[in-house]
Simulated scan of single mutants.
Amino acid sequence: MKLDLKIQPLSSWIKATNDNQPLLIAGPCSAETEEQLVATAHLLAQTGKVSALRAGIWKPRTRPGEFEGIGSIGLEWLKRAKAETGLPTAVEVATAKHVEEALKAGVDILWVGARSTANPFTVQEIADALRGVDVPVMVKNPVNPDITLWIGALERINNAGITKLAAIHRGFSSYEKSAFRNEPMWDLAINLKTHAPDLPIINDPSHITGNRDLIPYISQKALDMDMQGLMIESHIDPSVAWTDAKQQVTPKALAELIDHLTLRKPEVKSAEIKDALADLRSSIDKIDDLVIQKLAERMQIVEKIGNYKKDNGITILQVNRWDEILKKGVQYGKALKLDNDFTEKLLELIHSESIRKQTEIMNAGTGVKENLTHV
């Protein structure tokens, strides 16, 4: 289902500094001192690669006692940085008061943070404060992988009349340990793009990685996924940063990082390449049709099994059988050069639908309705 968002093109409110580099919003995680912020802004401006200066003024922290931002005085520092460098400024807002103070100070771009996006009451408060204002607003994905919350936040801001709108993909919290601070979960960003094709999505590799060494990898992946820009944290001296020191880079390192990224075009202009891609995509479409056909045939057999189990008083789930399917399938997929994780997730999805169908058969005529999606 397509979202009915009224959105102005990204180029109407922010642009990349040149056609050969990505749109870049950069600056320190936190504005710490006036000297730190202004000096960082000057170095970023000198790179010629930064389109806007970002800085955290109010910092929502997980636990009390941690540095929660310098507060409103930081807005004056941003005004000075903008006056001296010409860079537009961007800050995170989490309350109506933040919105009012930021706008009064002439901040050019606002963003809603991940913790705020997770709370519809907070988002609505921010949206109400924005009503009647013409300012760009970016909305980060919620902390947890819930695309409905992300969409809801975007809709609330858009319903307030904000048409200069973008999403920020900063990754999601996960119990699984990995190399990343927040799991990218690219499929959720792709899902959002499917719902809102005209919505710009800006990637935040700093918060995804939590590690400056991984920022180039995620940045390139984001650009290859046709995201419209990057938000990267940059500090004049990350080693002494008051917050998130490990994920910040110096302005010089940032410039080198951007120089090594490759911008690829989403549209194909060559007729020869278009024809070649069309042939390959036609082949994929035929295979996809066969896959769906075979899945439908499988589910017909599942229904027969469900009826047999019901007639003979057999439980839906036999753990040993499921283990056998999973082990055999993963081994077979590996032999065919399929990723183990992909094969396992595919089999789990198919098995989940099989359980749902059999549950539906078991409860037919009993008045019990099940919406079982996971084993």
Rank of each mutant, 00 (worst) to 15 (best):
A271S: 04
I162N: 04
E76P: 04
N203I: 09
P238F: 00
D311S: 06
T359G: 15
I284G: 00
L372G: 01
V249W: 01
E256S: 12
T366Y: 03
M185Y: 12
I236A: 04
V249C: 06
A39Y: 01
H374A: 12
E125T: 14
T315A: 10
V330C: 01
P28D: 13
T194D: 08
K6N: 12
E353G: 01
K328N: 02
E101Q: 14
I273Y: 04
L223R: 11
K286Q: 08
A83H: 14
P22V: 12
W77F: 09
N340M: 05
I157S: 09
P251V: 13
D146F: 01
N20D: 11
K337D: 10
V249L: 15
I215S: 05
R54D: 11
N340V: 13
P28G: 13
T163D: 05
D19M: 02
L149P: 02
Q220G: 03
A253H: 10
G106P: 14
P145I: 00
G313P: 11
A335L: 11
D259W: 01
I126S: 08
K193P: 03
I126T: 05
A81V: 10
G65C: 06
I73V: 15
Q220I: 14
V91E: 07
E101V: 13
D4Y: 11
D4S: 14
L103D: 08
K310A: 14
I25T: 07
T315R: 11
P60D: 05
S283A: 14
E176D: 06
V123W: 05
S116G: 05
T315K: 13
N363C: 11
I284D: 00
T343D: 01
F172G: 03
E34Q: 15
M231W: 09
I287W: 00
D275N: 08
Q247E: 10
D323Q: 12
S51H: 06
E100F: 00
Q318W: 02
K310C: 04
K97S: 06
K269F: 13
L3E: 06
V268E: 07
A45P: 14
P9N: 05
G56K: 10
I190F: 06
V99H: 02
A335G: 03
V249S: 06
L149Q: 12
P142T: 09
N159A: 15
W242R: 15
R321K: 11
Q220R: 09
R356T: 08
T373G: 12
Q358T: 09
D108G: 04
N191H: 10
K274V: 00
E303Q: 13
K265V: 12
M227E: 06
L214M: 13
T148G: 02
A129V: 09
K104L: 12
Q300H: 07
K310W: 00
R63V: 15
M362D: 06
L75M: 13
L280W: 00
G329K: 01
K49P: 14
I208D: 07
G113M: 05
E176V: 09
S178E: 04
I57Y: 07
H207N: 14
G27C: 12
K252R: 06
N141D: 09
T209H: 01
G229Y: 06
E297H: 02
I215P: 07
N18D: 15
D311Q: 11
T250A: 02
I232C: 03
A39R: 10
D213V: 15
